[in-house]
């Protein structure tokens, strides 16, 4: 079974929404906006306008709320045949193959960096790079190390190896420091707390990484 964060969204609605979001946002922000819909709005009826309002605010859209809302509505009611298939989610991890702590780590950091990038994509990228440097300096076996670095650099899938908890904890902490330095301590606390909540919902053992 593959672990897929967007699996709970019906594919047709997913496609239609993505189609609308593509007209509003740069391509790299579409998955994040979709994740926002999934987490905070999709489960409640009648929230499309609130979601549109959130998009206008969070992404500083130049279009007025009315137009954004109308665009999303239009795309949600497109005939299914005209909606392009949803793009693959950023990371598709074969959950059953991941050691529990590695899975918790991947879940936590994916969420943390997704939220971090929403506020400051450059700083998020730099922090991932710093983490990769830290892994490079570690004494891990080559395959373990390369897999983790590739994932951190966003050029490979989530690693499937077991890693020392101490290293994973250090990487989580470095991520926190990165958010602190880029956004400040209060957003960092909030962001990490939200990422912990998300990761704990999907997996176990997250607290061992803190």
């Amino acid at each position: 079974m593959a672990f897929d964060a967007s699996a709970s969204i019906p594919v047709t609605r997913d496609s239609a929404l993505i189609e609308g979001l593509r007209r509003l946002l740069p391509a790299e922000q579409v998955p994040l906006a979709l994740r926002l819909w999934e987490e905070e709005y999709s489960a409640r009826p009648g929230t499309l306008r609130a979601y549109a309002d959130r998009l206008v605010r969070d992404y500083a859209l130049s279009q007025p709320l009315r137009d954004v809302h109308r665009l999303l509505v239009q795309h949600l009611f497109l005939p299914q045949t005209t909606a392009r298939p949803a793009p693959p989610p950023p990371v598709v991890v074969p959950a059953a193959e991941l050691p529990p702590l590695t899975r918790a780590f991947v879940e936590l950091l994916e969420e943390l960096f997704a939220r971090f990038a929403q506020s400051d994509a450059d700083a998020a990228g730099m922090t991932r790079h710093d983490l990769a440097d830290r892994v490079l300096a570690s004494s891990l076996e080559r395959p373990q190390r390369d897999a983790l670095i590739a994932w951190l650099e966003q050029s490979g899938p989530a690693p499937v190896h077991d890693y020392p908890p101490k290293l994973l904890r250090a990487l989580v902490h470095l991520s926190y420091v990165g958010v602190c330095n880029a956004l400040g301590p209060l957003p960092a606390d909030r962001l990490l707390a939200a990422a912990i909540r998300y990761a704990e919902y999907h997996t176990e053992g997250v607290r061992q990484l803190l």
Binding site: Y176, Q208, L210
Partner: peptide, 8 residues
């Protein structure tokens, strides 16, 4: 505790 940034 759910908001805590540490182990339980």
């Amino acid at each position: 505790e759910a908001e805590a940034l540490h182990e339980e």
